[in-house]
């Protein structure tokens, strides 16, 4: 897929709970084709502590309104700067980058998308994509508290949503891998994105049940296009592989994590 460097216009910047914000970007031209799992390298200008672009998952693409959504949590100087963007501001993106989730799932597969924290971001686009192609999706979203569960109303448009919180403020108490839905139902495919310990636990669950499982990784990254070799993850079959081009989505069986 052809990659682009484009100046997009901020249509809306919606502050969400717990230091998250939702950026809706648009362009006068039709946005290029993007697929679930891919990401953008966002340029952060005029922030003294920021030098490199920030890799951000594509949260959702609204082709009707020509919008690209990014769900971002403020974690440092770069994301803080981005949180201050206002409607009408310009943001420079390199996109779409990286590979995609497995998209040919078969219509009758039982599909579970498991996300935690900011890792829920790419799962919305994936769920919407799969639903449009007649697949039934389930979402299992975990967070510390109810406040950290974001965009639930969006996920509900594309499938059943199950939740866990560590303080029992929403859904079942505990971690995603402790949710009862994983005990009672067999899934054919699991997609996961979130904190590494969570994804590892999900991968173990999948492995034990012989379930096909993909995880979307987030490593520190410089170029985003496979040139600098900084963002590698170690794999069983090919050694060090760039997360930006060989990933960010990996079959969890390949990973040496």
């Amino acid at each position: 897929m052809k990659k682009f460097m484009l100046d997009l216009t901020v249509k809306e910047n919606i502050p969400l709970e717990n230091r998250y914000f939702l950026l809706k970007l648009t362009s006068n031209d039709r946005l290029p084709e993007m697929l679930p799992g891919q990401f953008a390298e966002v340029r952060v200008d005029d922030a003294p502590t920021v030098f490199l672009r920030r890799p951000v998952s594509i949260h959702y693409v609204d082709y009707v309104n020509n919008e690209l959504w990014l769900l971002i949590q403020i974690v440092g100087g770069g994301t803080r700067k981005l949180s201050g963007l206002r409607a009408g501001n310009t943001l420079n993106l390199l996109f779409p980058l990286g590979n995609t989730f497995k998209l040919d799932t078969g219509k009758n597969s039982r599909i579970m998308l498991i996300g935690g924290g900011a890792g829920i971001a790419p799962l919305l686009f994936l769920g919407a994509y799969l639903k449009e192609r007649g697949c039934q999706c389930n979402f299992l979203l975990g967070a510390r508290t109810k406040k950290d569960l974001l965009q639930l109303h969006e996920f509900e448009k594309y499938g059943e949503v199950y939740t866990t919180t560590e303080d029992a403020s929403h859904g079942e108490k505990g971690y995603v891998t402790q949710h009862s839905i994983l005990n009672g139902t067999h899934f054919d495919i699991i997609y996961t994105c979130g904190p590494t310990p969570m994804m590892k636990a999900v991968a173990q669950y999948a492995e034990a049940g012989d379930i096909y499982c993909e995880a979307s990784l987030e490593n520190t990254m410089a170029c985003g296009i496979g040139a600098c070799l900084c963002c590698v993850t170690d794999t069983k079959d090919e050694g060090h592989v760039c997360v930006c081009t060989g990933g960010p989505v990996f079959n969890t069986k390949r990973l040496k994590w």
């Binding site: 003294p48 502590t49 920021v50 030098f51 490199l52 490593n219 520190t220 990254m221 410089a222 600098c228 070799l229 900084c230 963002c231 590698v232 993850t233 170690d234 060090h240």
Partner: peptide
């Protein structure tokens, strides 16, 4: 990994 660190 990690092989990269952003610095000022």
């Amino acid at each position: 990994y990690p092989r990269m660190a952003e610095t000022p």
